[in-house]
């Protein structure tokens, strides 16, 4: 009697689990409500993955785009001008960086009358922000606040439109390939995502259509266009190239020590692998004495 009951329970639990799995897998999953728009694609970046590191020339071009186009509204308040010289970044020469710093006006201390004193920038200064405060920034941008760009490449992301049961596969894939560039891919898609609005779409006052921006209405007008910025190194000045370069620059701005980190990472992984191997061999020879 006991056995029969337990067999019954076993069958029950087995069939419940089979049912659960099949019912979850067999039926098509729900589409995310609303939205639409194209899938954001994973781009090839020089700094992705195990061997990734920033491309100095690309960061310099990207800084050019930032300075000529973005810097009018977007700050980089967590960065200092000296960072532009640092190894693993755009690696401008000290003179170039100083020239960039000197263009900025920095408020530093007060004069004898107690009035704020202005001076030109030094390498040790933080990047001067384009607006004095958020209120001023909103006032000059039709009520919209242009976000600071210091960590923007890490503060944005996108979601794949995939059935939920395939998501664990993407997680594993992203983890195994060290996919940290979701934000950069989003920025690139955003900068290249300005299109003519679909038929029948009513845009808000001063708003622009962007196919990847959440809600598709963005206050910022298309910032980039072909030949918007001149490149000294002869790289073609297409819109896509501008978008790519400035996205790469912003990736560096939010993760300035990536080169050093990945470089050390290789050594650490090799060291740990060898140590683990030695420990394994030691463990095996020790345990050979004991049957287990």
């Amino acid at each position: 009697m006991k056995l029969k009951l337990s067999d019954f329970l076993k069958c029950m639990s087995a069939s419940i689990s089979v049912l659960m799995v099949t019912s979850l897998l067999a039926v098509t999953p729900a589409q995310a409500a609303g939205g639409g728009g194209p899938e954001i694609k994973r781009q090839v970046w020089s700094f992705n993955g195990f061997f990734g590191k920033y491309n100095k020339a690309q960061l310099q071009r990207g800084f050019g785009v930032y300075k000529e186009v973005c810097a009018a509204c977007h700050g980089l308040k967590l960065l200092s001008y000296r960072n532009l010289v640092q190894v693993g970044g755009p690696e401008f020469s000290k003179e170039q960086a100083l020239a960039i710093a000197k263009e900025a006006t920095i408020i530093d201390g007060v004069d004898e009358d107690g009035e704020p004193k202005e001076r030109e920038g030094k390498l040790s200064d933080r990047f001067a922000s384009p607006f004095k405060n958020d209120t001023q920034a909103r006032a000059s941008n039709n009520g919209a606040l242009p976000p600071d760009f210091s960590v923007i490449a890490k503060a944005r992301t996108y979601h794949r439109h995939v059935p939920w049961y395939t998501e664990p596969y993407y997680w594993a894939y992203d983890m195994a390939t060290g996919y940290e560039e979701k934000g950069v891919d989003y920025l690139y898609a955003l900068l290249t995502g300005y299109k003519t609005p679909p038929r029948g779409m009513k845009l808000g006052d001063g708003m622009n259509y962007n196919e990847v921006f959440p809600g598709h209405q963005i206050a910022m007008a298309a910032p980039l266009s072909e030949d918007a910025v001149e490149y000294a190194d002869g790289t073609p000045t297409s819109l896509n190239q501008h978008a790519k370069d400035v996205s790469a620059f912003l990736a560096w701005a939010s993760e300035p020590h990536l080169n050093a980190r990945k470089d050390l990472g290789k050594r650490v992984l090799i060291y740990l692998t060898i140590l683990a191997l030695l420990l394994f061999l030691a463990k095996r020879s020790l345990w050979a004495r004991v049957k287990h």
């Binding site: 890490k154 940290e180 990472g265 290789k266 650490v268 992984l269």
Partner: peptide
């Protein structure tokens, strides 16, 4: 170490 060096923000949230 893989996560620390190659996917440090993967387990976090962009917001």
């Amino acid at each position: 170490a893989w996560f620390v060096f190659y996917a440090p923000n993967y387990l976090g949230h962009s917001d």
